[in-house]
């Protein structure tokens, strides 16, 4: 029974989509609140460099080595960005823009030169193909499971554990990094771990949704949740729920119009954002209007 569930293409597509959304929302909530959303863009692109380098060294296309390589590439991206920004010759946003295209370009170049016959091509890199995740399976005990489901479960769990274990510390470091540092809570270290987790999430989600759509899952559900609540804990919960709902509702829409599944899932995050923007109780346009009228 269980075994057959994991071989059903549709169930696996939905499960993968839901896991990508949940994992992305957990780290994304803190990135959005730190005003570092666009670092997820940088990371999701520059990990292409990491993926190609790890492939050239080990010929592993997924699995623990790739995930470790991604974490290092993500940290490298942010480290280089801070280094460039630290010279004070360029602003931080420009530094991000200098570093990640360079790494991304190096990755694509290496791909073209040395890895022409690998299935990693530029199209997959950008968009992924969630429709085929059920084809790539691996054995876990006696259970045959799609690789994407296995690795996405691992990173989702890792993100969840990190956020739960360090909830108090992350909250302080995000709200008031100076006090966090003064109290000895190492906000910089917390920040780098968060980015390493963002990178591992990106590489695990890579086959499914690609680099560009991944950004939608990291940024849009937290930005939507931000409009709906004034509590950090609820913002995390809403982000995950909105992300998962986007994935689940995206699939039937994609089938209906016969378009990209990953793309439709990401587009649904935008639909939810628009709804919250218009109808949100406190920050939404209608809610504001209502509060204004009531206040008169």
């Amino acid at each position: 029974m269980i075994a057959s569930f994991f071989l059903q293409p549709v169930a696996m597509i939905l499960l993968t989509g839901a896991l990508v959304a949940a994992a992305g929302a957990l780290v994304g909530t803190f990135l959005v609140l730190q005003r570092n959303s666009m670092l997820s863009d940088a990371i999701s692109h520059s990990i292409v460099f990491g993926i190609v380098v790890v492939w050239l060294l080990t010929h592993a296309q997924s699995g623990p080595v790739q995930i470790l390589g991604a974490a290092l590439t993500g940290v490298l991206t942010v480290f280089l960005t801070e280094l460039v920004a630290g010279t004070r010759r360029v602003k931080r946003d420009a530094a991000i823009g200098l570093v990640f295209p360079a790494l991304f370009a190096a990755g694509v170049l290496l791909l073209n030169l040395y890895a022409r016959d690998v299935h990693i091509d530029t199209h997959t890199v950008l968009l992924g193909e969630i429709g085929f995740v059920w084809l790539d399976t691996m054995m876990l005990g006696s259970l045959e499971l799609p690789q994407a489901v296995v690795w996405m479960s691992v990173v989702t769990l890792a993100n969840l554990i990190y956020v739960l274990m360090f909830y108090k510390e992350l909250k302080l470091a995000t709200f008031d990094p100076q006090l966090a540092a003064a109290l000895g809570f190492a906000p910089t270290a917390l920040f780098y771990v968060l980015l390493a987790l963002t990178s591992t999430t990106a590489v695990a989600a890579f086959d499914a949704v690609g680099a560009v759509l991944f950004i939608a899952f990291v940024i849009v559900p937290p930005a939507t949740a931000y409009l709906l609540t004034d509590r950090l804990s609820l913002m995390l919960v809403y982000s995950v729920l909105i992300g998962v709902a986007s994935s689940l509702s995206g699939y039937p829409v994609a089938v209906m119009f016969d378009v990209s599944v990953g793309g439709t899932m990401a587009a649904m995050t935008g639909v939810f954002f628009l709804l919250a923007f218009l109808l949100g109780p406190r920050h939404g346009l209608l809610g504001r209007e209502w509060q204004r009228r009531r206040g008169e």
């Binding site: 909250k171 709200f175 006090l179 809570f185 004034d230 509590r231 950090l232 609820l234």
Partner: peptide, 19 residues
């Protein structure tokens, strides 16, 4: 130095002093 739009309450911020 801090973002006052952060989703949290007055009581929560004061409790940070106990961290």
């Amino acid at each position: 130095a801090v973002d006052w739009d952060f989703p949290t309450t007055v009581l929560d911020v004061v409790m940070m002093g106990r961290y």
